[in-house]
Design a binder for these strands. Structure first.
Lengths: 232, 232
DNA sequence: AGTGTAGGTGTACGGCGTACACTTGTCAAG
DNA sequence: CTTGACAAGTGTACGCCGTACACCTACACT
């Protein structure tokens, strides 16, 4: 009784609502436990209802990627290329840190979504506007984008899940087998409470790498400018 | 009749055989279609038989990683750190290129396997032996290991799967939306048969990035050496 | 009042990882 | 030669997954 006319009975689903719920679920339950069924339950709806808004799980994931990429700040105009690129990449990092599943999902897809493509395009544009030739921009994008060890790993990123006593024992064990790893782990946490883990300032490391690359790009650009052949 | 005594009836399973079969299956059917059931079938065995050799799928994947990492050449002694690191990383890249699923699997695990740890350790050792301080080595490992855009993407890596006519139409469409992407794609394939894709020399790009980083590391090391405080 | 349609439902199917109870083949000890 | 322990392989079953397909239902518009 007193039921609203023209207002949908429940809250009404929509692609947007589905995507937001999916992102939220992935954020705090982990991407591996995001299923159509759980997502539906979260939305108070039967699993198949989702399929009226997304074609399949693939498309759901695409949409989730776009939500995350949409959180990256647009480029700020009126600065030199270097600080503009720097700010943009740090903004991208912030977005991806808030959604730890996102990088893996993006990488696992074989084609970029239009939103990702647009992000790439505008990033390329920043280098071009900064005076980089097409070719140099091409190389620079590869440098920025590719991991250079075959792989990365935050070592010991689970430090909180095991008891400290056990950890100390394992530590001595490991120190024998991987002396160099321990040496770095030790140095990184010289002041930290635990022997391992929290002593490494991820943000610092990220910016260290970023600036190293940007400085490298800058000198390449200068070399290029002082040659006869520009562009192409 | 004439049955061998002391020789197992079929070929006899073993952890090693299971892992090799799994790697082979992932290599040519894709990691997403590697299931315990299919793997078992490949080995002419019932699914549950696998569980006598690996505890669960997680452990199977760990073992597969170790197989791949085991294909990376050991460091060659007697050269300067720079060429040694270079060769080692290129060897790692070769291994990972042969098993395209490997990087994603490695990244998706939250703890490195011992084999991966050992690889890291020996890589760190190469920098230390080359005169890098603990701290600088730490930063340098981060630089090498972390992708610096939130993500990477070989754009257009599916060029072969759609017909060229369609592709040309889409291309004109895309050129309007992502001019910079097209500019680079065009430049990369100035001589190539297709407008897109094969013109980009991945290997060149990889080495470009690698050398940019290594040169950067080198000058950092020189700066460091000419300071008062060494090490720690 | 009648009807088309968008959005939500219910049922069902095949595939997945794996727990658990079982058979079978091998070999050492009696 | 028998026995029986043990490792290796089997069979069945359960609960999860993505999703095809037929259905219902409520509103928008004629």
């Amino acid at each position: 009784m007193a039921q609203q006319i023209n207002a949908p009975r429940r809250v009404q689903l929509s692609k947007d609502r589905v995507l937001r719920a999916a992102v939220a679920l992935a954020d705090d339950a982990g991407i591996e436990s995001l299923s159509m069924r759980k997502l539906a339950e979260e939305l108070g709806v039967v699993p198949m209802a989702l399929y009226k808004h997304v074609a399949n799980k693939e498309e759901l994931l695409d949409g989730m990627i776009d939500v995350v990429v949409g959180e990256i700040d647009p480029p700020v105009p009126g600065t030199d290329w270097k600080t503009a690129v720097r700010q943009r990449i740090l903004s991208a990092r912030r977005a991806l840190l808030h959604h730890p599943w996102a990088s893996r999902v993006i990488e696992s897809k074989k084609n970029p979504t239009p939103v990702v493509l647009e992000y790439m395009d505008s990033m390329i544009g920043m280098f071009r506007a900064g005076g980089f030739s097409v070719n140099l921009t091409h190389h620079v994008m590869h440098t920025i984008g590719s991991r250079v060890l075959g792989f990365t790993q935050e070592l010991f990123n689970d430090s909180r899940t095991v008891d400290p006593e056990m950890q100390a024992i394992m530590l001595r064990e490991l120190a024998g087998k991987y002396p160099y790893v321990m040496e770095i782990a030790g140095a990184a946490s010289h002041e930290g409470e635990s022997v391992v883990g929290p002593g490494c300032d991820d943000q610092f490391e990220f910016e260290f790498a970023l600036d190293l690359l940007l400085d490298g790009f800058e000198s390449l650009r200068h070399e290029e400018s002082s040659e006869t052949t520009r562009n192409r």
